[in-house]
């Protein structure tokens, strides 16, 4: 009911922080606490993620950045003991009030740490999501598959072997097909959970180039362990430590003149 009002407030508060920022807020997180049973993993996380920007989440292992990422498409729902307080609005809708987690996940795609293609053909992998939404028309599916694979910059490498097993591809190719599989759903947001941590440097570079390209159409949130990567691909960076957001700023600012000494210690490699 009052979501529009809240959204407006969010926008205003964000505008105070970033005067020059014209992009609208895609994801707005307010006072998010998350518990695994008795253990609290996130403390009062609040941040605004803007449309068609790349937002990087950095921080040492166990700081809650992956947990936070998984709240955005409610993947944490899969764990019974998880409890959440606070609000997350995506496109102005409170995603934890709406019951329709399926609808949410079609709008918020995800790419995982390790490529997790299904043991099917490349084509069937990319067509999987649309088929589950009830698209059966062969022409339409062909179009989606081609567009998605092109969008993930892997079409030329796989166009002659679409019907062969996806598991026969190299790790880097698999990860790009995973990205194609995610964009086949035509999502608004793509979440990436350390998408290059299992890849070699050349494949990593390709995925990073892809991210820079995808940002034109999608809002991207990426968790990364690699600070150079965060610096290369992201517009904004949030530094997580022990379940709290210590600093959330323009990426160049985080890396060149962090406000918090803990951020400085982390980005200069003093710990983590």
């Amino acid at each position: 009911m009052n979501t529009t009002l809240e959204r407006k407030e969010v926008k205003e508060s964000a505008n105070v922080e970033h005067q020059n920022d014209q992009r609208s807020v895609k994801i707005s997180v307010r006072d998010l606490d998350l518990f695994y049973g008795e253990n609290q993993a996130l403390y009062q996380v609040s941040l605004d993620i803007r449309e068609k920007e790349v937002t990087a989440l950095i921080g040492p292992s166990g700081c809650g950045k992956s947990t936070f990422l998984r709240t955005l498409n409610r993947m944490n729902d899969l764990i019974d003991s998880v409890r959440i307080n606070g609000d997350i609005h995506i496109n102005g809708n409170n995603i934890y009030q709406s019951k329709d987690v399926i609808e949410l996940r079609t709008k918020v795609g995800m790419v995982f740490q390790k490529p997790n293609l299904f043991p099917m053909s490349i084509y069937d992998n990319v067509a999987y999501g649309p088929r589950m939404q009830g698209i059966k028309n062969k022409k339409e599916l062909n179009k989606i598959v081609e567009e998605s694979l092109r969008g993930a910059a892997i079409w030329d490498e796989v166009k002659d072997r679409l019907k062969t097993s996806a598991l026969g591809l190299s790790g880097g190719q698999q990860q790009r097909v995973c990205i194609a599989r995610a964009i086949a759903m035509k999502p608004d947001v793509i979440l990436m959970d350390e998408p290059t941590s299992a890849l070699d440097p050349i494949s990593t570079l390709k995925v990073e180039e892809l991210i820079a390209h995808l940002k034109k159409d999608y809002t991207i949130v990426i968790v990364t362990h690699n600070m150079q990567q965060a610096a290369r691909v992201s517009d904004k960076t949030a530094f997580f430590l022990n379940g709290e957001v210590i600093e959330f700023e323009q990426t160049d600012q985080i890396f060149s003149m962090p406000k918090d000494s803990r951020t400085e210690d982390y980005v200069t490699g003093r710990f983590g």
């Binding site: 498409n73 993947m75 899969l78 399926i102 609808e103 949410l104 996940r105 079609t106 795609g109 995800m110 995982f112 390790k114 997790n116 293609l117 299904f118 999987y128 999501g129 589950m132 939404q133 995973c178 599989r181 995610a182 759903m185």
Partner: peptide, 15 residues
């Protein structure tokens, strides 16, 4: 069956 298959499928908005 690897948990990653389950996650992958659910993350694509399938039931």
């Amino acid at each position: 069956v690897p948990a990653s298959y389950r996650e992958g499928s659910l993350a694509l908005g399938s039931t």
